[in-house]
Write a protein that binds this DNA or RNA. Structure first.
Length: 422
RNA sequence: GCGAGGGUAGUUCAGUGGCAGAACGCGCGCCUGUGGAGCGCGAUGUCGCGGGUUCGAAUCCCGUCCCUCGCCCCA
């Protein structure tokens, strides 16, 4: 019988993959809670209308998993968290004590073609600060991201957070006569600038409705890497980032705009410096979102980071952690001739003292049992075979040093305690 | 939705008309109760699936399914 195919774009988490996911979850929890953020989560299923509100046409119409439930309502597997967050905030309304610092790590789905760093089912870290409209709040979020990077060993020469501001960009564009209907086209154009050859980019601009003057103005605007200094908002942002000690990770980049429609102010994206430059994390300020889902207007700022690209970046930089899969502290060997009950008893005794203990679940040659312990990186093995049982003794082998000692069975627990304490 | 490359052992892949292979992994032995390193031996396959051409097909042709990469979009 052939193996039934998994659903396209889903991922299997074998123990080694699960170990990484759990490690990442722990790192994210650590960085988030260092800044006082509280963990929350939304449902995995939402009504489609929730996303229709503001997520952007592409994400809703092309990339959501949508299906009717038994009552005929159109349901989406959540493609992002921010609309659920906005809904949750709007529902509680004035019952909430602002500001809110909330974070989450969970699964999301997008119906798109699988490729490197992109699957249809992925995990995402979301973190938001709701109820504050200052650039200092934006800077804090960036600092949380930088803290995670630092904690896992991603330095500023491996990864950068590129920052821009939509209000600043709109003001700059207005000066060179780009406004109204040309604005979304320009945002799309800016977004593609680093992915296209200069000539192709120019033809694309002219085809999109730019005239030569506007294009020349745009090129000139992009060359001005000090433009942020004309924006009080950006000045505050960068000053705060410096005070938070994370400015080494930050660059002003006038081409960063972000695709989602709900961003209003500061926007940013983290990218790896040498690799494929795929976006690792993206976010910014959204001051109208809560009102869009029907609540009173509350400002917010936050970002999302996917697990897949993050893992790839760690790997490419040679800093993906080598994680142990087995939780076991001690393996108890098992031999025939009535030895099984002795093994099980010893396992229970050591487990009762608070250690993680497994017994080899069937009689087998010692060679095989030691190999099993070796492959699973189990640090201690208790050998209890016919020789030991007859003499009322046990042997304890340290798998790291290779040293082994035989002693009275009543000494076993203290010896294990001593070994595992070191 | 568009474009490119693939599918052969558990894994990564070589084989482009004539006996289905290598490396790693796995098993066994050297070592009768001692893992990792070394050496030796060994097992493992619907060559994605269906059809066609041929004396003969993993190899050529047609169809089909699946995977990967890129574009689009985005975490």
């Amino acid at each position: 019988m052939p193996i039934i195919q998994p659903v396209r774009g889903t991922r299997d988490f074998y123990p080694e993959d699960m170990a990484f996911r759990q490690w990442l979850n722990n790192q994210i929890r650590e960085a988030s809670t260092q800044f006082g953020y509280q963990e929350f989560d939304g449902p995995f299923l939402e009504r489609l209308e929730l996303y229709a509100a503001k997520s952007g046409d592409e994400l809703v119409k092309e990339q959501s998993y949508v299906f009717p439930d038994r009552s005929g309502s159109m349901i989406a597997l959540r493609p992002e968290l921010t609309p659920s967050l906005a809904r949750m905030v709007a529902q509680r309304g004035k019952g909430l004590t602002l500001p809110l610092r909330w974070w989450s790590f969970g699964p999301f789905w997008r119906y798109e073609r699988k490729q490197k760093g992109r699957s249809r089912e992925f995990f995402q870290w979301n973190i938001d600060l709701i109820g504050v409209d200052t650039p200092e709040a934006d800077a804090e979020l960036v600092a949380v991201a930088a803290t995670l990077f630092r904690n896992v060993g991603l330095t500023a020469d491996m990864i950068r957070i590129k920052v821009n501001n939509r209000r600043l960009a709109e003001k700059q564009l207005e000066k060179i006569g780009i406004l109204g209907e040309l604005l979304p086209i320009t945002f799309r154009l800016l977004d593609r600038q680093d992915r296209m050859a200069p000539d192709a980019w120019k033809s694309y601009a002219l085809e999109s409705g730019f005239n030569e003057n506007q294009f020349a103005g745009l090129v000139k605007m992009l060359e001005d890497l000090d433009a942020w200094k004309s924006s009080p908002e950006m000045l505050h942002f960068f000053n705060t980032a410096k005070a938070l000690g994370v400015d080494e990770y930050l660059d002003y980049d006038p081409t960063i705009i972000r695709g989602l429609d709900y961003y209003t102010g500061t926007v940013y994206e983290a990218r790896d410096v040498k690799g494929n430059h795929r976006s690792i994390l993206g976010g910014g300020r959204y001051d109208d979102l809560v009102s869009v889902v029907g609540g009173n207007p509350i400002p917010g700022t936050g970002f999302a980071m996917g697990d897949v690209v993050f893992g790839l970046v760690l790997e490419e930089n040679g800093i993906k952690p080598d994680l142990r899969v087995s939780p076991t502290d001690v393996l108890i060997t098992t031999f025939e001739e009535g030895g099984e009950s002795a093994s099980i008893q010893i396992a229970a005794e050591i487990r009762g003292a608070g250690y993680r203990v497994e017994w080899y679940p069937q009689p087998a040659r010692l060679q095989r049992q030691l190999k099993y312990a070796d492959r699973n990186e189990i640090p201690l093995v208790v050998i209890i075979g016919p020789d030991e049982i007859e003499a009322d003794k046990v042997s304890l082998k340290d798998m790291v040093s290779g040293e082994q000692e035989t002693f009275s069975r009543s000494d076993l627990l203290p010896r294990i305690k001593k070994q595992l304490a070191g």
